[in-house]
Amino acid sequence: MVMKNRIWAMVAGIAWLLVNSGYVLAGAPNTDFAAVTNIKYAKECGACHLAYQPGLLPERSWRKVMENLHDHFGDNAELPTADQPVLLEYLVNNSAERANYKRSAQMLHSIRKVDTPVRISQVPYFIREHREVANRVRGNEKIKSLGQCELCHQKANEGSYAENEIRVLGAESWND
């Protein structure tokens, strides 16, 4: 009897763990994007802008970005040749195709197969989500571009872009 109780306690414990870890409840993918975990990536790319989560773009886009660091949206962002493969590998292994995250899938599926966007803000899903914001932030001198995610998305650096975390500069809260 004691033994049986113990087994039941264990089963219940394991079930509780599974539910909490998201295995059972989230057969559906995680929301938003996987946070950046690579220290080198965070340091190198985060030196000039938010270290964008690799799950924001498909593999082919990241390859294109890394091939053109000498003209990185008008800036020179060249890296020593030795440092490039490590960063590309991280981007590729965590690109939108490989991330089991809801918004990664939404970004990915909104892009036509023939397109290879290099600007995150040109991905159709992104454009759709920011349609109204684009007009509201235009002319706001504090926001230089829609690429400055962290100015409005308070947890952008963790890969979280939930609506209730949005604070548009100069506005109380954001609901669309």
């Binding site: 000039c48 949206f73 400055q148």
Partner: peptide, 9 residues
């Protein structure tokens, strides 16, 4: 401190 011209970093 300075600021990146485009990203504001």
């Amino acid at each position: 401190s300075g600021k990146h011209e485009k990203t504001g970093k």
